[in-house]
Amino acid sequence: MKHPSTAPKHGLAAGDAGRPERADWTIDQGWERYTQEEHAVWRFLFERQSRLVPGRACREFEEGMRDLPIGADQIPDFRRLSDVLSRRTGWQVVAVPGLVPDDVFFEHLANRRFPAGQFIRRADQLDYLEEPDVFHDVFGHVPMLMNPILADFVQAYGEGGLRAQRMGVLPNLARVYWYTVEFGLVQQTEGLRIYGSGIISSYAESLFALADPSPNRVRFELERVMRTRYRIDDFQETYFVLHDLEELLELARVDFAPVYERVRQQSELEPGILLPGDDIMTRGTGVYHAARAEGN
Rank of each mutant, 00 (worst) to 15 (best):
residue 151 A to V: 00
residue 173 L to C: 02
residue 240 F to T: 00
residue 179 Y to A: 00
residue 277 G to M: 12
residue 193 R to S: 13
residue 90 G to T: 05
residue 4 P to W: 06
residue 264 R to M: 10
residue 250 E to V: 09
residue 244 D to E: 15
residue 168 G to V: 08
residue 285 T to K: 07
residue 164 A to L: 05
residue 278 D to A: 11
residue 219 R to N: 07
residue 189 T to N: 15
residue 40 A to N: 11
residue 224 R to G: 05
residue 174 A to V: 02
residue 286 G to K: 04
residue 177 Y to E: 00
residue 34 Y to N: 01
residue 11 G to A: 09
residue 64 G to H: 01
residue 263 V to N: 02
residue 122 R to P: 09
residue 91 W to Q: 04
residue 143 P to F: 09
residue 220 F to W: 01
residue 108 H to E: 08
residue 235 F to V: 07
residue 139 F to P: 01
residue 169 V to D: 06
residue 292 R to T: 09
residue 85 L to T: 02
residue 197 S to T: 05
residue 116 A to W: 00
residue 51 R to F: 06
residue 77 D to R: 07
residue 169 V to H: 08
residue 78 F to A: 02
residue 187 Q to P: 12
residue 257 A to Y: 10
residue 19 R to A: 14
residue 79 R to Q: 11
residue 252 A to V: 02
residue 268 E to H: 08
residue 271 P to R: 01
residue 93 V to W: 00
residue 142 V to L: 07
residue 31 W to I: 12
residue 283 R to Y: 12
residue 21 E to G: 14
residue 27 I to R: 01
residue 82 S to N: 05
residue 131 E to C: 10
residue 2 K to E: 14
residue 157 Y to P: 00
residue 103 D to Q: 13
residue 19 R to V: 15
residue 16 D to Y: 02
residue 145 L to Y: 04
residue 91 W to C: 06
residue 86 S to T: 11
residue 187 Q to K: 13
residue 205 E to Y: 04
residue 215 P to H: 04
residue 84 V to L: 03
residue 224 R to N: 12
residue 290 A to T: 13
residue 65 M to H: 07
residue 128 Y to Q: 05
residue 175 R to K: 07
residue 54 P to G: 10
residue 89 T to E: 09
residue 2 K to N: 14
residue 273 I to W: 13
residue 251 L to S: 01
residue 206 S to A: 14
residue 155 Q to R: 14
residue 215 P to Y: 06
residue 198 G to A: 11
residue 261 E to L: 12
residue 82 S to M: 05
residue 268 E to N: 11
residue 127 D to T: 05
residue 280 I to H: 10
residue 177 Y to S: 00
residue 26 T to V: 13
residue 229 R to N: 15
residue 292 R to P: 12
residue 292 R to M: 14
residue 121 R to V: 06
residue 71 G to E: 07
residue 57 A to T: 03
residue 294 E to Q: 15
residue 228 T to E: 02
residue 58 C to A: 15
residue 257 A to R: 15
residue 291 A to D: 09
residue 98 G to E: 01
residue 193 R to G: 11
residue 210 L to K: 08
residue 229 R to G: 14
residue 143 P to R: 03
residue 272 G to K: 03
residue 113 R to I: 04
residue 250 E to S: 14
residue 135 F to Q: 01
residue 218 V to K: 03
residue 256 F to W: 08
residue 213 P to Y: 03
residue 15 G to E: 11
residue 11 G to K: 01
residue 99 L to V: 08
residue 49 Q to R: 07
residue 233 D to H: 13
residue 210 L to A: 10
residue 173 L to R: 00
residue 23 A to Y: 03
residue 184 G to Q: 01
residue 79 R to P: 05
residue 156 A to V: 04
residue 101 P to C: 07
residue 61 F to W: 12
residue 231 R to T: 05
residue 205 E to P: 08
residue 19 R to C: 13
residue 214 S to Q: 03
residue 144 M to L: 15
residue 224 R to A: 10
residue 96 V to R: 03
residue 139 F to E: 01
residue 279 D to V: 12
residue 176 V to F: 00
residue 127 D to R: 09
residue 82 S to D: 05
residue 161 G to W: 00
residue 21 E to L: 14
residue 287 V to Y: 13
residue 21 E to K: 15
residue 150 L to R: 03
residue 197 S to H: 12
residue 51 R to A: 15
residue 13 A to S: 15
residue 143 P to E: 07
residue 270 E to M: 08
residue 172 N to H: 13
residue 13 A to H: 09
residue 293 A to E: 14
residue 44 F to R: 12
